[in-house]
Amino acid sequence: MVGAGAVLAAGSTSACLPLDGADQERSGAADPDRRRVEAMAAQIEELQALLAATALAHPPLGTRLAALRECHTAHHRVLVGDATPTPSSTPSTVPNDPSSADPATVPASARAAMTRVRTTEEAHVSALAAAAAMSQSGALARLFAVLAAGVEQHLAVLTGTGES
């Protein structure tokens, strides 16, 4: 798998090399592309917590959101390697990281909860597209653009604008 770490490590295309602590200390602060990877990974972690909390608060939504959660897990893995919260192997309403899922923060109405998810996800797509536009590395730009397209595609299915 060609991950962001591999892209940042001089454009290797043969393996995913996660960003480790040493890499980040070495060049993190000075490398805008590395900061973009870290920012997008952090944003995905926040989204995963939101989706997990939403699934806990509204179990029927959990099933609908399962594919999107798996998409985010795959994106996080390609950005930072396998040093991530272990995802469930099958879609479920159980959060990947229960400690970060707080259903109390989720709107009581399922419709409002979905609106919040959609709004937050759309902002994430915009952030990924902006990161793609600004990346110094062409390979990283491509990766960010593909991630944006992947989330947008899942949102289209989720909101019924896909699948005619």
């Binding site: 798996e70 990766l143 991630l147 397209a149 992947g150 595609q153």
Partner: peptide
Amino acid sequence: LTQWGAPAEPFPGA
């Protein structure tokens, strides 16, 4: 792609 009937995927185009 989803309108054509393809399932959503994490990495469209890659």
